[in-house]
Amino acid sequence: MSAVMSFVAVQSSLAKWLRASLACTFIIVASYLPSIAYAQALSMINGNETQKITISDLRQQSDTAVTLFDPYQGRDVEMRGLEFRRFLIDQFGEVPPALHFIAWDDYEVTLSGWDDPNWLMVTEEDGEPLTLRTRGPLRLVERNHGAREVESLREFNDWIWMIRSIEARW
């Protein structure tokens, strides 16, 4: 009996080692691939603590799908992502009063008013993962445009693109 248990334990350790080795290999290989090395993780900053979340994890967590008109693309797009308010609560315990965003195109902004279930953090569009070319890998959109004029891009200034890091400002 104990021999069987030892065999199972060894097998389990072996499987873990193999998975870890594969992950390391993947990260090393990925870091050498030119375009894949960028925009693969999101940094969540809370005071002195920084936590990195891989974009693939966020895609897996994406449980909300919605079809809405994207004024930048000028068409209806099926977007998939996470409810941003719930995501913030999961990460910071509660919705911070303000968030400081840094994007991959070096755009920086601090905005407040995120305690609103209308915001969706998009990871996929029409079934395809967002990339820098499609203003990803993460983008914040509002599920309901309200009364805003979709022809005026100025009205969608707070749709943050290419999100690289999110810092809680308390």
Binding site: P34, S35, Y38, P71, Y72, Q73, G74, R75, W104, D105, T131, L132, R133, T134, R135, L153, W161, M162
Partner: peptide
């Protein structure tokens, strides 16, 4: 390529 991707993303607007 990163810069080209960023440029692409900013130019590919309806």
């Amino acid at each position: 390529v990163l810069n080209l991707d960023l440029a692409y993303g900013l130019m590919d607007v309806d």
